[in-house]
Amino acid sequence: MEKANQSVGITFILLGFSEYPHLWAPLFLVFLAIYTVSVVGNVGMIAVIRINPKLHTPMYFFLSHLSFLDFCYSSVTTPKLLEILVVNIKTISYMGCMMQFFFGCTFVITEMFMLAVMAYDRFVAVCNPLLYTVAMSPKLCILLVASTYSWGGLCSLTLTRSLLELSFCGSHIINHFGCEYSAIISASCSDTYFILMLVFIMFIFNEVCSLLIILSSYLFIIVTVIKMPFAGGLQKAFSTCASHLTAIAIFHGTIFLLYSVPSSKKSLLFIKIATVFYTVVIPMLNPLIYSLRNNDVKETIRELINVKQLFSQCNFD
């Protein structure tokens, strides 16, 4: 902790996309638009689920938490990204950096397992439809959600604690737009072997566990669908799972690419782009994916729009 105490007064310089000054204004406008759509989409999804009693089911309970996580981890990083695109002094305090890493890491790992929980929910819905409401009781749903948040927080706390042991010397430059773990490690003058191994082991463990749950759930779903005697079973199951599978493919694909690429100078731009994708773009895509493919959500949105139009017309009259 002595090293951490010595580092508290440090201010990091975030390079962001400083090598492309001609792109700052366009990037700011693009990221601001994406972030706005993300916030409106995720908050709107939570509101729609709470408003419509038909959506008070385990699947939508998990979906509301997925939207909450998307909103949170997008809001941890994106405001700072927008700030460093418009200000001349691109800095972040040591504690601000550690807190950004902690919360960002917590929400990402939590979402990783939230997607796994949603896969289990789809498995129960397709394979045991008659027992679905009994098997996915409110108590179990709350327990599953609480477990994902707890595990995400515990993993993030472990990684943040290891970062606090690092010492920083020299220029304190972080070649990133945020406090991503590889960028923080690159700015340290300590021996980073232990933390690199810790991150690698934790990443492999979380990826394997979450993907194992997802793949097992969908394997049982596929077997169940194949055994269904009626032709509409496949279409119904695909309609139920398609949105979730799309979200899984985008999220895990991006995370895997990001953490499988070595932190070398040649990969720095790739790391920044991949981080932008999973912290800014994916939180915007998830509400669009689920709303565009979900009739209940689209019906609720249409009803809200009609009520608003009717209310506006009455006020005008």
Rank of each mutant, 00 (worst) to 15 (best):
L234I: 06
L245T: 11
I282H: 09
F316C: 10
C105S: 15
S38M: 11
A25T: 15
E303Y: 04
T275Q: 10
F277W: 10
I174M: 04
F200M: 11
C179L: 00
L269S: 04
T148F: 00
L198C: 06
F205E: 04
Q6N: 09
V87R: 07
E207C: 13
I201R: 15
T300A: 11
T36C: 01
R122Y: 08
L258K: 07
S263Y: 12
A146T: 03
A146D: 01
C209I: 14
A25P: 01
Q235P: 14
C105Y: 12
E19L: 09
L27H: 01
I84Y: 04
V223N: 13
T77V: 14
P79L: 00
K236T: 11
L55F: 08
L66H: 13
S216F: 15
F123W: 15
K3E: 03
M45H: 10
M136T: 10
G178L: 01
S182M: 00
K3H: 06
P129E: 02
T57H: 12
V40D: 07
V145N: 14
C169A: 02
N5S: 12
Y20S: 12
F71R: 03
W151I: 05
M98W: 01
L140N: 08
S64A: 14
L245R: 13
S264Y: 04
A187M: 02
I201Q: 12
I173M: 08
F177Y: 11
S217L: 11
S291T: 15
T133Q: 11
F277M: 07
T106Y: 05
A183D: 00
G96E: 03
M118Q: 07
I204D: 10
P53R: 07
I248N: 15
L55H: 04
K139H: 08
S217G: 13
I250G: 08
V223W: 11
F101R: 02
L130N: 14
N52W: 07
H22W: 05
I255F: 06
V86D: 02
G16E: 00
S264N: 10
Q6Y: 06
Y94C: 02
T158V: 08
N206G: 09
I49A: 08
M118C: 06
M112F: 08
